[in-house]
Design a protein around this nucleic acid. Structure first.
Lengths: 331, 331
DNA sequence: ATGAAAGCGCTAACAA
DNA sequence: TTGTTAGCGCTTTCAT
């Protein structure tokens, strides 16, 4: 068994209260006794039991992070950013993969509450009302990353997906492309990512172009979706460019194009989204809109830690900057 | 405040002991009182406080996972595999990024102990003696993933890196390649990944080929390392093929080749390692040795959970199967 | 400046 | 079958 505060107290010849005092640096402790206690701590390699402390203080110094799937390209960097700042402030993170499944999410949230996490970083492209209710009922301090809710009831860190998509589409248009296709998420889901379609739509309209449904493909966010998307779109139409809702989709699209004898960027311009770690490694290097993934995680965690410690927030709806990265998939 | 066991007891008109009994399904409880308790639980939306339970039982139902960096290609899948099985058995995971930094690792391990995790999954390409000592001193139940230690003192799940590299190199040789280069990790570190070099070396020797130092480049495991590696190697030599210690290195190598006017696989065969999610998306599709990353995580977690619950292990040094994936980067 | 003791929410040994 | 109670390791109030 590891040494407990009692052992230290005995070793130092003081009461456990005194040990606690030097441990937490509170009250005034005589320099001599403090030293005796510190020596005892060192001698016994004592480390406080945080579970016991948590029970008393009602704070666990741990934060839950709920992601759809850590093995998806987007999340590891966000989580890394979050964990780095958590670590700075002596917090740890409990990672949960929900697969965006409502029941799984609810159960995880309940368990996080049972384990008394101090707060939660919630990431999911969709955000059901039931989840909001649960968060509310459990009074679980949470900040949203990637999504936000209209009322602004929960703090969030996001980028302006619609505007980013707008800019990307405009960029494609300004390159002289007429027929610009879109491959992305189904638009019927109320999530952040599907708002990219709205940006695409608006950019076309603002340029006096009607959106042509046969140029739009709704699927997932994987390479296979980009591949399928191109094949479907090319069945009935010709295109000059494609705006893809993720880099992986862009890569899949480029592969499909190539298999059809079409070259990117010579024949078709392709634009991605995210700027994941492979975007600059792929051939051709993917032009994309970069999302500050690491920062989304780190500012999200910073906000959350402030909230947890009742510190005032400068702003509770952070909108981070995205930026267009011009590489080789757009000529 | 959330309801506590006391509230439930009061509501149901029983003692807290009885509530605890129905909660944990121990002893025999009268059906009627059991129902009363269950009703009270439902009525109050009661959920046990796991921190309090943990303090008493000395088990937290949480497992620490130490990885170098979750934003590296390899780890997300392993972690996903681990978390999935953890979830099945009602465990949660605390994720820690160590950057393979010894001090950070030591501190994380101590904190995990303070938080009374039931066990730890340790992943790191290198495994210093100090870490082993600390694990030992803290009596922290741990299983090693990706590495193992010679004595077999700690349970592990790995693949045979040397043999896998041997097979890959042989494969390249059998394709008729004479000058086969190697780009991978510095071999001076005692880690699992650098053993791939030993496999490469042995394959050459077994084929009666002397290893030519100018065909070997030691760097990191990123695309940039593959890119640099090719440039350095090509300064003094010509090559027929390259065996790369990761898929990212392979991609970087292929890019460098292309920039030099060399085509893969026409001019040079390139072999990767891992079979990460981009390997089949890259052009050309990367031929590689597939590591069962998800499985490494899931069997690692399975072992750990058995250990934590004092169940016997069938085997404590699992060596999982890798397999060669033939795609397009080798002709 | 220090100690005694209550209590955080639970489990489990013991009693009834 | 059920209740009482000690105690897990700590923090913190109240005395001293």
């Amino acid at each position: 068994m590891a040494a407990s505060i009692k052992d230290v107290a005995r070793e130092a010849g003081v009461s456990i209260a005194t040990v606690s005092r030097v441990l937490n640096n509170v009250d005034v402790v005589n320099e001599d006794t403090k030293k005796r206690v510190q020596d005892a701590i060192k001698k016994l390699s004592y480390r406080p039991n945080i579970v016991a402390r948590s029970l008393k203080t009602q704070k666990t110094k741990t934060i839950g992070i709920l992601v759809p799937d850590i093995s998806n390209q987007f999340y590891p960097e966000v989580v890394r950013g979050a964990e780095d700042v958590a670590n700075i402030y002596d917090y740890n993170i409990i990672l949960c993969n929900s697969d965006s499944d409502l029941d799984k999410e609810k159960e995880y949230i309940r368990v996080l509450k049972e384990k008394m996490v101090d707060g939660m970083l919630y990431m999911s492209s969709s955000l059901e009302g039931e989840i909001l209710d649960l968060i509310d009922e459990l009074e679980l301090k949470t900040v949203l990353v990637e999504t936000k809710i209209s009322g602004g009831k929960l703090p969030s860190v996001t980028i302006d997906n619609k505007k980013a998509a707008y800019d990307a589409t405009k960029y494609l248009l300004e390159k002289g492309n007429k027929k610009v296709a879109y491959i992305g998420l189904k638009k019927d889901r109320t999530n952040a990512v599907s708002r990219r379609y709205n940006g695409y739509e608006k950019a076309l309209k603002d340029s006096g172009i009607e959106v042509d449904p046969s140029l739009v493909y709704f699927g997932g966010l994987k390479a296979a979706d980009g591949y399928n998307g191109i094949n479907v779109i090319l069945e009935n139409s010709e295109i000059d460019a494609v705006f893809c809702a993720s880099d992986e989709v862009a890569m899949g699209a480029i592969n499909a194009l190539r298999d059809k004898g079409l070259d990117c960027p010579k024949d078709v311009d392709v634009m991605g989204f995210n700027d994941n770690s492979m975007a600059a490694v792929f051939y051709p290097k993917i032009s994309t809109v970069a999302q500050p993934m690491y920062d989304m995680g780190s500012v999200g965690m910073r906000m959350l830690i402030k909230i947890v410690n009742n510190k005032p927030l400068d702003d509770d709806q952070y909108v981070l900057q995205y930026y267009l990265v011009e590489r080789d998939s757009v000529k």
